[in-house]
Write a protein that binds this DNA or RNA. Structure first.
Lengths: 152, 152
DNA sequence: TCTTGACCTCAAGTTCACTTGAGGTGGGAC
DNA sequence: GTCCCACCTCAAGTGAACTTGAGGTCAAGA
């Protein structure tokens, strides 16, 4: 097979460490758009490996798949993204990561302070009035790190 | 009602921002152990508010409820924990938080480097051999930040 | 020729962290 | 007395992110 034929789903699985079923699921969610060969099988670009890695990293930061999709939608879907393409989406995204890291650091310090404070005055303790209360509305699992779809 | 009667589930909900149903669920999961009054209603200590806050913060760091339970099991369940009690569990837990933060920072830098690298040599790029591959086994949602129950 | 392996689809199952709903109790306020 | 409200239990539903299973295609190798 020539390089232009692209990679099979098995190749992508081997290269990314993702399960084949997960890759199919990601296609369904619009995170990748492989084309099909004559036999109806998925064919991927090498650049899709990077897309998948991006997904995996963003997930660790607590982004949901729809959110990641929004980021990736700013990349070209059917042409290999250039360095400039990636750099463009990187700017906003990196800021988001920094924000999440800072938030966790603040949270850790809050916990630190409160564990140490003894809290004879319960009302005054930061823990009892946390900056962001857990979302009370909606069902399903809570989004981590304060990144909920409805930031009301 | 005297202070010694403790707080109702509604009080706890109001003070923590958690839903009443969530508090009942947390009891079921062994995260809190309220006692019951004559009418069979849950009664909480003031210290339970702190317990719940701890749960909420730990969750934001990506800990699962069983993991949080393990941490909390090191506190006395039916007596109000002292400052020393909290300080004791704080040591190990704080280290875990620092580790998670460091991990995210490294991940962010990896992404940064890889977005900037152009990657003419795909094989050499750190993204194609991420330090920790996503778990391939098991069902259900992936645990965030590499903290899975079975660290095989 | 036959089998194996990699791929395909579509429906249903799974885990986590909850919420929702149905049906019931008990105590104040009017 | 009756109404409401806060609470109770237990079963079932929900959303996210996948996995598993059943049943089928197709090409390459023994």
């Amino acid at each position: 097979m020539a390089v232009s034929d692209g990679l099979s789903i098995g190749d992508i699985a081997a290269r990314t460490g993702l399960a084949v079923s997960a890759i199919r699921f990601y296609e369904e969610q619009g995170l990748i758009s492989p084309w099909r060969n004559d036999a109806g099988r998925r064919r991927f670009q090498r650049a899709d490996i990077r897309r998948m890695s991006f997904v995996m990293i963003a997930q660790q930061f607590g982004f949901s798949l729809p959110q990641i999709r929004t980021e990736l939608d700013r990349l070209p879907k059917h042409r290999a993204p250039t360095k400039a393409d990636w750099a463009r989406i990187s700017v906003a995204f990196r800021a988001g990561l920094d924000q999440r890291i800072a938030r966790l650091q603040k949270l850790r310090d809050t916990l630190d302070g409160c564990i140490g404070c003894g809290c004879l005055s319960l009302e005054a303790c930061a823990l009892y009035n946390p900056a962001d209360r857990a979302a009370k509305r909606g069902t399903g699992p809570r989004y981590l790190m304060g990144d909920r779809p409805d930031q009301s």
